[in-house]
Design a protein around this nucleic acid. Structure first.
Lengths: 349, 349
DNA sequence: TACGGGCCGGAAACCGGTTGCCCAACGCCC
DNA sequence: GGGCGTTGGGCAACCGGTTTCCGGCCCGTA
């Protein structure tokens, strides 16, 4: 059987050509180009296209150099509200710019991340957007640098969102949000309400984002001449369960504090529930703040005071800067600002 | 300039062949196949591959019939927690089965949905998973039927998640969750606590999912010999803001009710905040229930009683059934069960 | 009537891979 | 030493498109 319409695959341009009684080139020209085609021919071709319900194979077009460009978004887990927000921004901007959007969840597995990136290089994606914090180790830098070079050599571009930059010269676009500054402002706000002992529910100790927020926490204290009690610095991860667990620990250890600052809103949500379970009132008995300003923050009770991070805008920005450039462009580093949004979860002491 | 490595694109298989002093076919065989190649040649080829950092173009492989298969996930907005959960399931299962995953946000725009599907047909995706409710009109059925046929003719498969089925004979896989049954069980639970007047914060009147849940609400009443007051049936959409607005309306209209059932947890979240803003206590003054069991439901205060829908499992199932079939397979219809999860937002009256 | 130019359409090369087919070289056995 | 089977590798066709190049036709004009 030699390429009859018997098989389950769609019809080819040659099928259309045969049916319209023209050559494949003509069909291509009718469908694609500026090339002059007589009205009669055009009509016949279009009818054949309609009758066969023909759509040109995008992969073949891509090989020929005229395909729909694609871009990849690699993240840990789309389920996290802030990641979802970013994904939304990425996806919107990508389709606005005529790109398709591949998404890959690494589930936090470095090897899987590497595999995805290699696959994306094979797919010849216009850009690979990598999001989600990691440890900023030398090993991370060389590994990521190598990836960036590979992609650049293939005409693609690596974008790092909320990840540590790689140092000068790497063909990479880095977009960060100001973790330290945001945390500083937030904690300063808490301290300004008169709180002296504020519990910090942090992330993984080596996680760059977590570190930034922790630095802000410390800096805000020192700016007021306070030295925070190391006992009040707890480490976990950025999940709701981590917040819940840490809060219970703090309570059972009978740590003294009048306010809690969580490294993310998810952590804050878990902590809030733990506080409620312990019969404590927020902010009556203890004040609470989060970080990220995920949509749900305002529906917690009390509505959560937090730091707004423009995640969706971040996603849009990532694709815009990634696509509006040549592969040889120099490295680029954007730092997005954040601001505190005051709600009802903090009170004066 | 004729295909030198000067250009920004990666190296081709011919570049590798030239550097290794063999033909392109040999490179292909070393990289790909079972074909016997001498150790010496293999070594030379692999070295060339490494030195050039070569990765075969996945699009070209696809044209040749050996590409990485891809699957498309078309939804309204990845930002909704239940959609994100499904997306996660889809993505996980897709990569587990060696597929790439394209996601497209329609923003609720029917035309854009159509465009995406056409694009996916051109991409020759193995399956197109369409999620998110719509009105079940004749126009919807014929339009979707046409899409299903197109995809089937191209060897692909349409999967409808949480969408009305198309009637017999359509080459489509439909996976629904039991909206009516879940709502019935939930409302029955509410009524069993002694509530007589329960406010229903519904979705769009013509939205199939919303209708199902509303039917469950009505049926549960009638099963107890109650005829619900039509005044207590409010319509909006599935967003948090809708819940907030509707709740404020109900309050300002001084409707009488002792319990509120929201069509989704998002709606419930907005309603909860509106109740709090009005100084009402939940469940002290009024009981509240949601639907979907999104992760945040248990961190609301009080923790929300709701109906669990296995969204992530749904996503996994969608890709599993879509990929494990031939295009000629008959239509298929799965109905996933749900169950009530009792938390603290409902009390006896 | 011959000629130049514009309009249209086909043949063929190309994109970057894979694979069927054929043949050379080699080792083995008789 | 000749016949034969096995191994290894190149050529060319193919996947499904696009685009360059070329030539035929029809027109107007000299």
């Amino acid at each position: 059987m030699t390429r009859k319409s018997q098989d389950a695959n769609g019809s080819t341009i040659r099928d259309v050509a045969a049916r319209a009684g023209v050559s494949a080139s003509t069909v291509s020209r009718v469908l694609g180009g500026e090339y002059p085609v007589s009205t009669a021919t055009r009509t016949r071709v279009l009818r054949a296209v309609r009758e066969l319900d023909y759509v040109a194979d995008a992969r073949a077009k891509a090989v020929a150099g005229v395909g729909t460009p694609t871009l990849a978004f690699v993240l840990e887990d789309i389920t996290g509200p802030s990641f979802a927000l970013m994904a939304h921004g990425v996806e919107r901007e990508a389709t606005r710019l005529g790109h398709l959007c591949l998404v890959c969840s690494t589930e936090g597995d470095v090897q899987r991340e590497l595999d995805f990136i290699e696959t994306m290089r094979a797919q010849r994606t216009a850009a690979v957007i990598l999001v989600g914090g990691t440890a900023d180790t030398p090993e991370y830098r060389t590994r990521t640098r190598r990836i960036a070079d590979s992609l650049a050599a293939a005409g693609s571009r690596l974008v790092l969102c909320g990840r540590p930059p790689l140092g000068p010269g790497a063909p990479v676009t880095v977009i960060e949000y100001d973790n330290e500054g945001g945390a500083y402002a937030l904690v300063a706000h808490v301290l300004a309400q008169g709180h002296q002992r504020v519990l910090f529910l942090g992330g993984k100790p080596d996680h760059a984002t977590a570190q930034g927020r922790e630095r802000g926490y410390l800096a805000a204290h020192r700016a007021r001449g306070l030295e925070p009690d190391p006992e009040l610095l707890l480490h976990g991860d950025f999940t709701r369960d981590s917040g819940h667990r840490l809060m219970r620990q703090a309570l059972s250890r009978k740590l003294e504090f009048t306010a809690v600052v969580a490294a993310t809103d998810m952590v804050a949500a878990g902590a809030l529930t733990a506080l409620h379970e312990a019969g404590l009132s927020v902010p009556g008995d203890v004040s609470l703040a989060g970080y990220d300003d995920i949509p749900f923050a305002r529906d917690l009770y009390p509505a959560l005071t937090t730091v707004h991070v423009p995640y969706e805008e971040l996603g849009r920005l990532a694709v815009r800067t990634a696509l509006g450039r040549t592969p040889e462009s120099p490295d680029e580093h954007l730092l997005l600002g954040t601001h505190v949004v005051v709600r009802n979860s903090i009170t004066t002491v």
